[in-house]
Design a protein around this nucleic acid. Sequence first.
DNA 1: CCATGCATGTTGACAGTGACAACATGCGGT
DNA 2: ACCGCATGTTGTCACTGTCAACATGCATGG
Lengths: 205, 205
Amino acid sequence: MENRTYHHGNLREALIDAGVALARTGGPSAVVLRAVSREAGVSHNAAYRHFADHQDLLAAVAVRCMEQLGLLMVRRTAEVADDDPVPRAWARLAAIGRAYVDFARTEHGWFRTAFSGATAHGAKHALTDPEAGRTDPYTLLAARLDELVQVGELPPDRRPGAEYAAWSAVHGLSALLVDGPLRDLPAEEAGFAVETVLAAVARGL
Amino acid sequence: MENRTYHHGNLREALIDAGVALARTGGPSAVVLRAVSREAGVSHNAAYRHFADHQDLLAAVAVRCMEQLGLLMVRRTAEVADDDPVPRAWARLAAIGRAYVDFARTEHGWFRTAFSGATAHGAKHALTDPEAGRTDPYTLLAARLDELVQVGELPPDRRPGAEYAAWSAVHGLSALLVDGPLRDLPAEEAGFAVETVLAAVARGL
DNA sequence: CCATGCATGTTGACAGTGACAACATGCGGT
DNA sequence: ACCGCATGTTGTCACTGTCAACATGCATGG
């Protein structure tokens, strides 16, 4: 199940992988059709047999970047060692929030690509596709909020729409820190901003 | 103080204006050097006498877009009719928040341009340049938060960092609604999301 | 077991882009 | 009146996305 002759075989995956690699350091604008093709050892226009468009390729790459984000969130969730259900629920919520902004700051090429708007209308929204929702950030967040309800920390009548509040705050902070006006905040101040936002989210739910 | 002979005169302003016009409908990627030059009735490369780079021009356009956002916030703040200081302070905070996301949704070309990351390191941060901070979104937000403190609704020890929380939530919601995964939320649900986020912010401060 | 079809990959071309270099022009100061 | 230098122009280059026409070889049916 490797690359067989590879001259035929699993291009498309190879192209996406190359795109992901380029996106990591250069962001969405580095995912260039010809560079991706060259990286995959194939000549330009080969990609057109697997993707309709540059946009289409970028969308596939963006999905992968989003998965990377989800994976970090999953990992950080698993690392929470707390046993008491209530503090555990809060700690796990904080963990995914921190994971989100950490991802944005350490892998900001991937982060910008994931939200470059390329994930347009064709991609699998976790709301419709329950299959690949295992690492979908939205689904992961929803699970944490549900846990808070189960544990009795979040009134059920406040549950609807809670993901909007939490997601917006964390995503907004990430965006502002990565390309936005908060870009060149000193590291210490940035850390303070993260903690402040997370605390405000917890209070605001 | 118009365009005089204009053959000489106030190009640069003309270029920025053209860029703003293009950005309005097409976003940052529509701010193309040659299109801008053509629009200004001048031939390509003329812009290089006034801007170092494409990036540099885009940054200038982005500043203008940010000003537009600020202007809407100012306008909406002034429209608040409440007289009692306390509800007034809250209403004005909500007003700038709603203005922010309304701007993102109705002028999403401008919004995306304003936060396209072009405002890089050269631009006037309101934190350093008190002059043009009259319409700077950050400054406007800070004023509302200060008002909340004065009115006794926000404990002074919670004031520091409060802008991070409020700004992040509102900006994140805007970003998610404009290009993000919440892009094609039905209008009704989007409205619900806005109200939910604003309420959470108010609680979370 | 061979021929053929069709998915897959290649070559070549074109318009549009940002950037540079060399050239033209005309206003302002001496 | 002159000339310098800021301002605008022409020409060109490498690079990008995209299309059309062509090549190739694996899987299928006879």
